[in-house]
Every structure is written in C-alpha cells, then in structure tokens.
Design a binder for these strands. Structure first.
Lengths: 193, 193, 193, 193
DNA sequence: GATGAATGAGGCTTCATTCAT
DNA sequence: CATGAATGAAGCCTCATTCAT
C-alpha cells in the first residue's frame, strides 16, 4: 500500500495525473494491476490518498521547536527558512507539492487537504513568529503577517523551478532561501524613520 | 486559429493538458474536430502553439518604460511590481503561466520558450533596476540581483494561488504585491550599520 | 482527368485502394482535392474509371496481327507469349493488373470489366490459335484450349511476382515467358504414341 | 488468440487489410476490441502474425513423401501437382496466399516470410524432382528447373482466380492442375530429335 | 471550371476498471 | 489477499466528401 502510493506519486509527478497509467504504477510498485483496487477505489482516490498521506511530520517538529524555543523571532524565521529550504528539496515532498499545485484546481479535495494540513499550518507559524517579534519590539513591520504568502513564496517557487526550469537554469535553493530570509529580516527590523 | 488557441487554453487550464478533450476544444472554438488539425499537427503542437503565442507585449512596454524612465530605481521596482500584479491577474496570462508551471516538466519546449521569452526577460529587467539603484547609491544590497526569483516569486505564487487555493482562501494579489515591493525596498535601501 | 487517373493508379497500386489518400492523388496530379470530384463522383468511381480506361489497345493489335497472319499456330503462340511478356512488364499495365487482382474481389465492377475486356479476349485468342493448330494438324493436344489459364498463368504470376517478390528474388520475365512457350509447344506438337 | 487470427484472416481477405475494421475482427472472434491488443501490438502486427502462423505443415509432409518415394520423377510431379491443387483450394491457405499477393508489396515482412517459408520451399522441391528426372534420363529438359515459377504459376493463378473471377467464370482447379502437369510431363519427357 | 478550408463520421488504440481464478 | 486477462468507453487523429468563393 505504501509502495503503491510511492510508485503512484512518482508516476503522477512524472507524467501528470491523467497521463500516468495505473499499469505502470502497479509495475513500479511490484504488484498486479488489480491489487491497486484492493486498497484504492479509483485512480482519483489514489491521488487523494497520496496527498492525504503527507502528514507533515517535519512541520510538526518545526512547530514544536519554535513553540519551545526561547530564541528571538529573527532566529526563528531563519530556522523556518532553512526548514522550508530542506522541505522543498526533499524529492517526495517536492513531488507532492508540485502535484498539488498542478492538479489542485481540478481536485478540490487535494487542494483543500494540502491547504489545511500544510499551507495553513505554515501560515500560522509565520504569523506566530511575526507576532512574537512585534511583541518583543524586534520587528517593526507586520506585512508578512498580513501576507504570509510573501514568506512562503520563494519556497514554492523553488520547488516549481526545480521541476520546470532547473534544466534550463539551475537554482541554488538553500542560498536563495537564505538570501530571502536575510532580506526580509532587514526589512522587518528596520526602523521606519 | 486564434479561436482554437483560446478555447484550448481555456480547456487545458481547466482540465489539464492530458484530460482536456480536443472535441470540447473544437466545440468551444465553434469549429469541427478535424478543423483543429488543419492548423495544429497534434494536440501537443497545439499546446506549444498556445504558449508560443504568448508574445509578452506588456513586458515589452514595461521594458521600454523602464529603459526610458528617469525615475529612481525604487520607483521602477514599484512600477514593475504593479505590472506583474496586473499581469498575473489577467486571466489569459494567468492560465498560460499555470499551464507552463504544471506541464513544463513534461514538455520541455514550452518550459524553454516561456523561460526565454518571459522569465528571463523579467529577470533581466530586475537586474537592470537593481544595478541602477546600486550605481546611484539608492540601494545597498544586491541579493535580488543574485536571486531575481525572489522578486518574481510572489507574482508566480499569486497566479498559482488564484488557481488552486483562491476558493479556500482568497488573496488580494495587488495588495500583496504592493506589500512585497515595499518590504523589499525597505530592505534594499537600509543602511547596514 | 487523365492526370488524375494516372496519379490515382500510382497511389492505389502503391498504398492499396483503401490506404491511398485522395489528397495525395490530387497533389500528384497537380490539382486540388475538390477537382477530383468534378470528374469522379467518389473514390470508388475513380478506381473503376482507372480500370475502365484500360482499353487494351495492344491486345487489339495482337488480335488483328494474329487474325491476319498466315504463320503457323506455333509461331502465333510465340508472338502472343512475347506480347504478354511485354504487356506485364509495362508499368501501367502491370499496376492495373495487380490492382484488379488485389481489389477485384471487393469491387465486382472492376473484376467484371477486366475479365470482359482483357482476360476473356486473351482467352479467345488462345483458343483460336489452338483451334488453328489442331485444324492444321500442327498441334496434337487441346488442353490449353480447355484451360487457357494455363497459357496466361505465367504472365499473371510474372506481374505479381514483380510487384511482391522481385526485391527478394528477381525474375527475368521475358526469358521465363519464352521458356514457357517453348515447353508448351513441345507438349502440343508431340505425337502421343 | 487463434480465434482472433482466424477472424482477422477472414476479414482481411474479405475487405482488404486497410478496409477491414478491427472492431469487426473482435466481434467475429467473440472478444472485445481491446482484447486484440493483449496479443498483437497493432493491426499490422496482427497481419504479420497471421502470415507467420502459416507453418506449411502440408508442405513438410509433401517434402518428406517426395524425399522418401522411390517413384519416378514424373509420378512425383503428379503428386506435387495434386498437393498444390488441394493446397490452393483449402480456404485458409487460399486466403493467406491472396493476402500475401495483395498486400506483400506494402508489407515486406509478410512477403519475405511467405517467400522463405512457402515459395522457396516449393521451388526447392520442384528443382529436386527435375534434377532426379534428369539424372535418371526420364526428363530431357530443364526449363522448369530454371523457372520453377512455371510449375507453380497455375496454382497461384487458380487461387487468385477463385477469389477474383470465380463468380464470373468458375474454374475447375483440380482438372486444370492435372492438365497442367500432364502437358508439362509431355514436354519434359519428349525426345528432342 | 477550380479551389481548398471545413466537416464529422469512423478508425486505431489506450486504459481505468472488473472479476473469475 | 493477489492476480492479470478481459472489457468497452472514450480519445486522438484521418480522410472522403462538401461547398462557398
């Protein structure tokens, strides 16, 4: 079952959901075609199960680390930037993300699930960090709290870029994320005169 | 021919390239199935033609405006931010972008074309503005010149978000882009002490 | 009109009636697709017209030559053998013949026409020659009169062989036809003791 | 699989390869359309498989009978003539032959196969018999050894005639083949004075 | 007469899904 | 539980035929 999901993720990411063949999924998972239907009622259910099995364990760890950390907000932002950089560079997570962004419009269930389980948790984290920084006087601006997408955007783009444009123009994801966080911190901590 | 491209863009964006049916494209374009093949040798060629017909006229205007403008670099960044915000909110451009990001990995021709005709031109523009700002002493940091994706990212994410997550959580694209530019400007103009 | 027929014969022979495309016929004939329909109501009519335009002019000349000739029957058979050898080596006639033999089962009209205009006339000629030879005491056997196909067979096979097997194993059609006639003459003139 | 081949042979022979519809083949074989593709990658492969399944078992028996027989060469030719007469009257073999002669020019694989497995074996047999007759002094002429097509031709023509012209003018294949062999024997055994 | 763009029925092929073993 | 042969709906694409110019 896990093997089927893994194989399906591979193939959905590679060929696209529609173009991927369940026969190839079965072959890659080392099972027969019929076996898939013992665990997943349909191809679409398999897609939804793949995304639904994205439990965001790393995210949970980051949440706990940040909740527990006595470090200043800036440091927490750096921590989160690095976590995101790692996250989008891990092949499986990147594939799920690209799959959700590619097919989410047509399969509301996966968009909904991913938003609830991953996106909105990230957004909450960011808002919490910003709030902490504002409360402590460390930060002077709340834009990223109003638009947490601004903090997440480079990570999403990094994931997509890696899939779509990397062959044309490679991208150093970690370096870019670091630059992103530093720029943001400079803006956040700047005293508006 | 133009009607076919428009209808195909609609359906490819809506259903995905693989899942979209050429019969529906024909119906939407008001022609017969066979007519499509008078102009496009195959479904894939139609996809490539759609992307290839993205001429980036707006981008050309922005390039000229920026080249000709005597305004300070900060103002030019704002200008460009607004242009991008408008760009990703215009339905056709947004559809093409989402299509490229979704299918580009499987159709190198469209990734290549879009990168060459749109992305890399945007990147060049950003670098030019940053260079101008650095030369004039207006800017103190060159991160966005090293990673122009950082400037573009929110626009790409806005386009994707509008397609995938807007129903779950709407997004004020223009406001976000403005916040993005202002944050960035604050970071760029800050004196590192 | 003649150009259309010639082009169609080429393509029907090359690709088969069903697989040949009228668009290619038009191109080869140097006319537009629609023009074909000014002269032939349908693809099938074009096929029938091609075969129907086979007027057997050579056959007429041979008929006249044989009717007028004072030569012995054996000489007339040799004459006819050579005429057949030339006939099946002339590309257009060979194409028509192969087309009739390939498609005749499905298009009774062309089988009927070809049988009436070519085959049966050949048969009649052979029977006349045999009758002459028997009357003069030159021939002692009438098998080829009962089965004129026996005289024609090598010519038909030569035509087919040239189309189907020539690349694998070439065939000297004229030499074979000569050997055929000489063998037959030896059998026909032999005194059964 | 065998049922599919049989049904396909029927329909290809009846309508021609191009005009035959795989849907009808499936129906005639009592399977669904898709089932054909479990066994044959494409329509053309099905055609080739049909011809390739022509194993020439009868031919093998004739080869063995002739190799083992102590009978004089003339008797062996009669034997072979009868075998060929039967061969081209058996519906399946006749269909395959007509299919090869009709489509062989467009599908070199089937021409090649049929030539190698059937035609050239027949040719070899004829040459062996003629050689035996010459060695024993029974035959005085070697034309049919130089052009074995002369011996085969009436059988091929009989097959084609049955398909194309039988409705117009029936043909007693066995009687014709017998006349053919007798004529040939008379020519072969004649003392040239 | 001639054109060639447009049509749409129909063919080959694919593949998600089922089910007897 | 697992299999994989079989199904048949549906998609891409072709091409004979039509018709406005």
């Amino acid at each position: 079952m896990r093997a089927i999901r893994a194989a399906a993720l591979d193939l959905f990411a590679q060929k696209g959901f529609s173009a991927a063949r369940l026969e190839d999924v079965a072959a890659a998972a080392g099972v027969a075609k019929g076996t898939i239907y013992l665990y997943f009622p349909s191809k679409q259910d398999l897609l939804e199960a793949i995304v639904a099995s994205t439990i965001g364990a790393t995210l949970t760890r980051v949440e706990q680390a940040i909740a527990a950390s006595p470090a200043p907000a800036g440091e927490l932002l750096r921590l989160m930037g690095r976590a995101m950089a790692l996250g989008v560079q891990e092949p499986e997570r990147r594939r799920v993300l690209h799959l959700v962004l590619s097919e989410g419009a047509r399969f509301p269930a996966i968009a909904q699930f991913y938003h609830r389980e991953i996106i909105s948790r990230g957004v909450r984290l960011i808002r919490a960090i910003i709030a902490k920084g504002l409360a402590s006087g460390e930060f002077v601006s709340d834009e990223p709290a109003r638009f947490p997408q601004l903090f997440i955007a480079p990570a999403l783009v990094a994931a997509i870029w890696s899939v779509v444009f990397a062959r044309i123009e490679p991208l150093d994801v970690s370096a870019m994320m670091e630059a992103h966080v530093e720029l943001l911190l400079r803006a956040l901590t700047r005293r508006t005169e």
